[in-house]
């Protein structure tokens, strides 16, 4: 599913260069539920953004479902983001002016899916995350946990094989966090591959495997 070899990322800020990833090797098989752990500033988000094709590496190779994505154009990467990965952010990143329904519908609008198909899929996803009755509400009218569930429904809209979550419970109270993690568990049991960033071992315990990153380098799997 994911195969990274010697992946590097150098940030350039003016004349200052900073190597955030110093040669990462990471392999994730289909159907795995993996936690990515590491201290703050170790490069977790940088790695997730590259996996999610929001950013591009400056060295090494990255194969997603057997396809080399390091040489893709901007629009090709958009297509990968649309169809291959669902991204869940710590800060939800919902459109504030759009309803829960419209937020979930968004990825399908960029894919040109027909209205009846979209409606069916959105209703199905909102029912799954338990927010069907809230479909006409805007994010500001929802609790943090509810917003994150809308975000998860949106990430799954195009039925991507892999779900990426960068500290998905970081902005939530523990009860809402647990609900999100239970949702991930059931998604994983239904066959979805999941990669989740956390710095909490209790949260990492939900997953099947944990990988550690330190100072831009992977540590041995536990």
């Amino acid at each position: 599913m994911i195969d990274m070899r010697n992946l590097k990322k150098v940030y350039k800020t003016g004349s200052i260069e900073f190597e955030a990833l110093k040669g990462v090797f990471l392999k994730i098989e289909k159907g795995e539920f993996v936690s990515l752990m590491g201290p703050s500033g170790s490069g977790k988000s940088t790695l997730m953004n590259i996996i999610g094709c929001l950013d591009t590496p400056t060295g090494g190779s990255y194969y997603l479902e057997g396809r080399d994505v390091s040489g893709l154009t901007f629009d090709q990467l958009s297509e990968v983001r649309n169809q291959k990965v669902g991204f869940v952010f710590q800060s939800f990143n919902l459109l504030p002016y759009a309803t829960a329904y419209e937020n979930v519908e968004l990825p399908m609008l960029y894919n040109g899916k027909k209205a009846p198909e979209r409606r069916q899929r959105v209703d199905e996803l909102l029912t799954m995350v338990g927010l069907y009755d809230w479909r006409k509400h805007r994010p500001t009218e929802l609790s943090g946990g509810q917003q994150q569930r809308v975000a998860i429904a949106r990430a799954l809209a195009m039925d991507p094989p892999i779900l990426l979550a960068d500290e998905p419970t970081g902005n939530l109270d523990s009860k809402s966090g647990e609900e999100i993690l239970d949702l991930f568990t059931s998604l994983w049991k239904a066959g979805r591959t999941i990669l989740m960033v956390t710095h909490d071992t209790k949260i990492a315990a939900y997953s099947q495997r944990t990988v550690h990153i330190l100072d831009g380098k992977m540590e041995a799997d536990i």
Partner: peptide, 16 residues
């Protein structure tokens, strides 16, 4: 910008 970022993240192409 954030709205644009969200749209790009879920798969909007440049021309869209």
């Amino acid at each position: 910008l954030r709205e644009i970022g969200v749209k790009l993240a879920v798969g909007a192409k440049r021309k869209q």
